[in-house]
Design a protein around this nucleic acid. Structure first.
Lengths: 237, 237
DNA sequence: CTGAAAATTATGTCTATACATAATAATCTG
DNA sequence: CAGATTATTATGTATAGACATAATTTTCAG
């Protein structure tokens, strides 16, 4: 018999990947069930389960109860993007971090922001704009609206020295967030702050952070020209 | 005793998140070990392990053998970006998909591409450019170089009807890939193809796909103005 | 006091077994 | 034969116990 000895879930994962790879199990094919694989590999079903579950989370396999496990037909590449604190991102590159608060006021946000935060029209928000610098050069311009209904303590913060980014992270618990990456033309103001020219392409990240169903903050991060996000998908390095 | 009844790993995960949330376990704090938590929650250690491991994968907890488990100090938001096949992305929006191959030749790639593919200078590659359309409008312009040393079968493909994107995915196995997102100014050529104007900000995705240590292809995807990637991080919807 | 060796500890993983759950297939009923 | 009911099946998860592994702490030798 083929009583092979694949003892660890990693080994099993590698073997499954190999079989997909060499088209033993082509895209769309149903693979043997956990019990049979466990017998074949000479291990417990839980070990097979661990391996297959991880591959399903990575988007390589699709699993459904009773229906079984099949190789994903359209292998969506699932890339994980780490979004660090800006300070960390800059110091992590070995550059000096500097922060400059540019404005701070309590006003009624524009409808664009009201929509994103999903709040009522009459609510006032704290509006903070700031510049993050890397080795003295403008790195990213932050335009942030904080929902005072959710984060009232923010009203007492000056955000002179500590960025709203970091203060919120340390003080206001959140459950999840929405992110949008896009390319935009630098506005007159963006351009001035980032020391570039009007209309220049800039990488923009927009984030809305939530605590359950209550919006905490909306931030538009406008990166200096040349910025890009680098990430990877798949297994091996 | 506090013999609470948290039976499922999901319930335990929620409870752990709650404690982090209300600052019972503030950022940086070491939380009790698995055995103690299992006792407290009235479940097996494996169940606690499952819950904590998932949170560690999400970047919320940091775990080290012997040292224990602590709440991440800088909670890096880890967003998962799904990168579907272009056809799928368009039809998924309910739009009609159309594909137009624009050029196809075998030449020596420019140094910029040679660097990304990590190949020797003398190697010829297959260069394919194509346009993907959504409901008749230009959606993304694809500029792709295929390493014929790794994917020799690609030489026999015309890519008239089937995009290189899809052909490669279906025929050439890969292990992993590098991705870069950036904002760039549309080149003269980009602008013509995408029916926009020269210098206009465009969202660019560059991908290098690998089979172990051999590069398969480098693609530069230049999206029509207005495109953005939307994703989310965290748990609750 | 310093550096190497050994004990300790928390996480990491595997096993065997059991039951839960969702989805499909088969069967019964009007 | 349609529609509801029941059986079957593969995955999903829980458990108790065991051993593996990495990292720290303690002990020991010089």
């Amino acid at each position: 018999m083929t009583e092979l000895q694949f003892n660890s879930w990693q080994t099993i994962q590698d073997e499954v990947l190999r079989r997909i790879h060499v088209r033993d199990w082509p895209p769309g094919a149903v693979i043997p069930n956990e019990a049979d694989l466990a017998k074949e590999f000479g291990c417990a079903r839980a070990t097979v389960n661990r391996a297959l579950r991880a591959l399903a989370e990575a988007g390589i396999l699709e699993r459904r109860r009773k229906a079984g496990t099949r190789v994903a037909l359209h292998p969506v590449s699932r890339a994980t993007v780490d979004i660090p604190i800006i300070r960390q991102e800059i110091t992590g590159r070995g550059q000096a971090y500097d922060y400059r608060c540019m404005s701070r006021s309590v006003t009624r946000p524009p409808s664009r922001v009201i929509d994103r935060l999903g709040i009522q029209g009459g609510v006032d928000c704290l509006h903070v704009t700031a510049l993050h610098l890397a080795s003295g050069a403008p790195f990213v311009f932050e335009d942030r609206w904080i929902n005072l209904a959710t984060a009232p303590d923010a009203a007492e913060q000056s955000f002179d020295a500590l960025s709203a980014n970091e203060w919120l992270l340390a003080n206001i618990p959140y459950t999840h967030g929405d992110i949008r990456f896009a390319a935009e033309a630098a506005s007159e103001h963006d351009a001035t702050v980032l020391e570039t020219s009007h209309g220049e392409p800039v990488f923009v990240m927009e984030r809305v952070t939530w605590d359950h169903d209550r919006a905490i903050t909306f931030a538009r991060l406008c990166y200096a020209p040349g910025y890009g996000i680098v990430t990877r998908f798949g297994s091996a390095p």
